[in-house]
Amino acid sequence: MRITRTARVGVAALALAFAATACGGDEATSASSSAESGKLTVGIKFDQPGLGLRTPDGSFSGFDVEVAKYVAGKLGVTPENITFKESPSAQRETLIENGEVDYIVATYSITDARKEKVDFAGPYFVAGQSLLVADGNTDITGPESLSGGKRLCSVSGSTPAQKVKDQYAQDVQLQEFDTYSACVEALRNGAVDAVTTDDIILAGYAAQYPGELKVVGEPFTEERYGIGLAKGDDETRTKINDAIDAMIEDGSWQKAFEDTVGPSGYPLPAQPTVDRY
Rank of each mutant, 00 (worst) to 15 (best):
Y277S: 14
A7P: 09
G262M: 01
I200V: 05
G25K: 04
S130R: 11
A182Q: 05
E97M: 15
G211R: 00
K74R: 15
S30A: 13
G217H: 14
Y70P: 10
K163D: 15
D47Y: 02
K231L: 11
D178M: 02
Y124Q: 04
I110T: 07
N98M: 07
P210Q: 10
L14H: 02
D112E: 15
P56T: 01
A243S: 03
E185L: 02
P88H: 11
G211Y: 03
M1N: 06
D245L: 12
E144V: 00
V164S: 03
P123K: 00
Q271C: 07
R276S: 13
V9Q: 12
Y108G: 01
Y266R: 04
S154P: 05
F120T: 05
T196S: 13
P123I: 05
L152N: 08
G76M: 10
R54T: 09
T260W: 00
D233G: 08
G251M: 00
D250C: 02
A22D: 11
T6F: 07
I96L: 04
A28M: 10
D250H: 04
N81W: 04
N189H: 08
S87C: 06
V77P: 09
D112M: 03
T196R: 06
P272E: 13
V215T: 02
A31E: 11
D245W: 09
R92E: 14
D26T: 14
A31K: 08
K255H: 04
A22Y: 15
V172P: 05
Y225K: 09
A191K: 12
A161D: 13
G76C: 12
D26Y: 14
E80G: 08
R188W: 01
S252F: 04
I201Y: 02
D47V: 01
S87L: 07
K45P: 00
A169K: 12
I44H: 04
V77F: 02
G50Q: 04
S89E: 13
D135I: 11
Y124C: 07
D250I: 00
V195W: 03
A191P: 06
P269L: 01
N81R: 15
V274K: 08
R92N: 11
S130D: 00
S30D: 05
V9G: 01
A68W: 02
T6H: 12
P263F: 00
E80I: 12
A270Y: 03
A161S: 12
I140E: 09
I200Y: 04
P269V: 01
Y180V: 07
Q170Y: 10
K165L: 09
C183N: 07
K74Y: 06
A243M: 03
A31R: 09
I96S: 10
A127W: 04
D250Q: 03
R237Y: 07
A35H: 02
D178P: 03
A121G: 09
T236G: 11
T236F: 07
V67L: 12
F18V: 15
S32I: 06
G149W: 12
E235Q: 15
S32D: 11
D259G: 01
T197W: 06
I227K: 15
V118Q: 11
V164C: 09
I110K: 10
T159V: 14
A68K: 14
